[in-house]
Design a protein around this nucleic acid. Structure first.
Lengths: 227, 227
DNA sequence: CTACAATCTGACCAACTGGTCAGCCCTTGA
DNA sequence: TCAAGGGCTGACCAGTTGGTCAGATTGTAG
């Protein structure tokens, strides 16, 4: 009975047009069309996953004929993969380095704030990623067991050093990472639920307070009191 | 290029057949067929969401002709809604009560353990729910803004009392709930990612240690030290 | 203006979608 | 033994799917 998801979800396309990420001037018709298509596709894929999305629907959101998408991207799969790669590239760009000399609290807090900023700025990308993982990550196998695994390994090693030094609660380091990822991504992936239940951060101030809450709660939970 | 998600995902149907939840004797042909269909449908819907799933695929997993599903459930939508309602009913059954007199640490820990048990026993149900929410919760509007909202309100009131009594960190109570939900559901919803990256709990002992870690970390972070 | 390539798209296609239905099975109770 | 009704399904249908393609339109360099 419910029609499509609230069309307001798709409205995010329009809201975000020429905002946030799309800092490119995009002059040539190719660039214009491509970014227009990518925005629409991110919207639809994030909402319905790869298999649940149709080119027709993406075309409608982009306000372009379906054949145009295929002219620029060749196939549904290529469009989807392009979008995934674009997302991973952007995420990578916002990741800080880490070293055993750093203070755990500082690093954890920075990580939480970065992830929350992404959840706010690019919720579609987060949902796209989530939908892909829920469906078994058929297009992300390589990335997950390659680049991301390496990134994670470095963090785990540092965290193990912290644990030895008594600066971090003893535990499987991956679980610490999952604690941070899950608590922050939640605000992008489950935005619909949060909208219905309440507690959705709206203003800059809200997001600031949320970041304070999450980071200090996790830090206090993870870093032994310095008493 | 990647085919369907790892068929091992669908294999969960077989693994879980006559396990966990399906405690029913299920004698009549109707009951047998229905539970068989529901198991297969949960599997497929959890993986691809409502729109990404097809009756043909569900029928194949259930090893029944497609027309049979329609004979028992009438339509794709009715089957999906039936599944959602079944999930919510089961979740409701495992929720404990709460009162301002309880110790926050005990209640939080119990909540974490319950949610983690669900994430382990019924990961498909969790993913089904997650996919539905990601897509904008078109079939869950009523539940989210009705029954679940009430459930949540009660917890929020108790938590506010705890905060006044200095037993719980001052914050938007909803954020506390989201902290618990997100950290626990993560192990069901993002199981594919966890399988590739490592840190997946396997044995009973692993799950016990994970529950200890999550609950004590959150408790230490949320409940002011009693010094 | 011309020529050549890039851009664009309506019309089309085979495969698949959810759903219907006539009619076949098989049990069960009298 | 037999009728009746639930259980079951192959064949079919209209609408949609991702994708192709011939050709129209546009931009642009000479």
């Amino acid at each position: 009975m419910p029609a499509d998801p609230p069309s307001s979800l798709y409205a995010e396309v329009r809201r975000s047009r020429s905002a946030e990420f799309s800092a490119a001037p995009a002059s040539s018709p190719r660039e214009q069309a491509e970014s227009r298509i990518l925005e629409a596709a991110e919207c639809v894929f994030a909402c319905h996953g790869y298999r649940g999305s149709t080119l027709k629907q993406i075309a409608d959101v982009a306000e372009l004929p379906k054949a145009n998408l295929l002219y620029y991207f060749g196939s549904k799969e290529k469009l989807y993969v392009h979008l995934l790669e674009q997302t991973l590239t952007r995420w990578n760009a916002s990741l800080e380095d880490i070293s055993p000399e750093d203070e755990p609290r500082d690093v954890l807090e920075a990580l939480v704030r970065t992830k929350l900023k992404l959840a706010r700025q690019a919720p579609q990308a987060s949902r796209l990623f989530a939908a892909e993982v829920i469906s078994g990550a058929p297009f992300l196998r390589e990335y997950l067991s390659g680049a991301l695994r390496d990134w994670v390994q470095v963090r785990c090693d540092v965290m193990k050093a912290w644990m030895v030094a008594g600066k971090l609660r003893e535990a499987e380091p991956m679980w610490v990472i999952y604690l941070i990822w899950s608590t922050t991504q939640h605000y992008a992936d489950f935005a619909a639920q949060i909208d219905y239940l309440g507690g959705a951060p709206q203003t800059d101030e809200d997001w600031e307070r949320l970041a304070d809450f999450v980071s200090s709660t996790l830090c206090d939970g993870l870093c032994p009191r310095q008493a």
